[in-house]
């Protein structure tokens, strides 16, 4: 299994994410700069969290228009698996690979804490190691995580069962408590919580490990 992590100026979760991949999967991921023209052949591409381009204009807006994103979009359309975590989620919505957008938290506060999430379905590449409706504990750390979409888009997300994770309790103003969602083909996942920060019980929870284990599980079954 080949895992590639894309680093933009201002990305700051790339090493944590690489560490999680190494620890959970025993695989050395490639970290590449967004200035590369092509993404190497990968089974899973991760856009980690951070503040790409200082959140200038809108979170993820500048990164979403980097030339490397043309190749990411192409690979996404070909069915390559992609996860965008936190700022990565914002970048994927700005690129329109995922619907909706992430507004400032309704409290206007940066929120950094562990939250309870409900797993919506476990029949995807990213969640096969969870149970449907299982409640897990994974940290969030963001200022712009308030998911918004117009009513038609929201209806279509729900009708297509594209929600991946919901906050058990309202936390940032997200419509329908959406914490993470898939594209229609279920090969692209964006989520505000940080599974890579929840892979070792010494940091309080390892409920995030199974996102990575699920991916690996896909190749062993």
């Amino acid at each position: 299994m080949n895992v590639t992590i894309i680093r933009f100026p201002g990305t700051n979760c790339d090493l944590d994410t690489a560490n999680a991949v190494k620890k959970v999967l025993g695989i050395e991921p490639k970290i590449i700069s967004c200035k590369e023209n092509k993404i190497p052949k990968s089974d899973l591409i991760i856009i980690p969290g951070g503040f790409s381009y200082g959140d200038y204009l809108r979170s993820g807006a500048i990164a979403a228009r980097e030339p490397i994103m043309d190749d990411l979009e192409l690979k996404g359309n070909q069915g390559v698996y992609i996860i965008g975590i936190c700022n990565g989620f914002q970048i994927l919505t700005e690129r329109k690979l995922l619907p909706g957008s992430l507004l400032k938290n309704s409290s206007l506060k940066f929120i950094s804490k562990n939250v309870e999430l409900k797993i919506t379905r476990n029949d995807t590449y990213f969640t096969s190691k969870y149970q449907t409706n299982e409640i897990v504990n994974i940290p969030i750390a963001h200022h712009d995580g308030n998911f918004f979409a117009d009513q038609d888009t929201l209806d279509s997300i729900e009708a297509n069962n594209q929600v991946a994770f919901r906050y058990l309790n309202p936390v940032n103003g997200s419509l329908n408590n959406i914490a993470g969602l898939y594209n229609k083909n279920l090969n692209i996942l964006g989520l505000m919580p940080h599974p890579e920060r929840a892979v070792d019980i010494r940091t309080g929870t390892k409920d995030g490990s199974r996102v990575f284990e699920s991916a690996l599980n896909f190749y062993s079954t």
Binding site: L57, A61, T93, E94, G100, S101, F148
Partner: peptide, 9 residues
Amino acid sequence: KSLLANTVI
């Protein structure tokens, strides 16, 4: 349309 504004919001 392509960059300055996000017409979703």
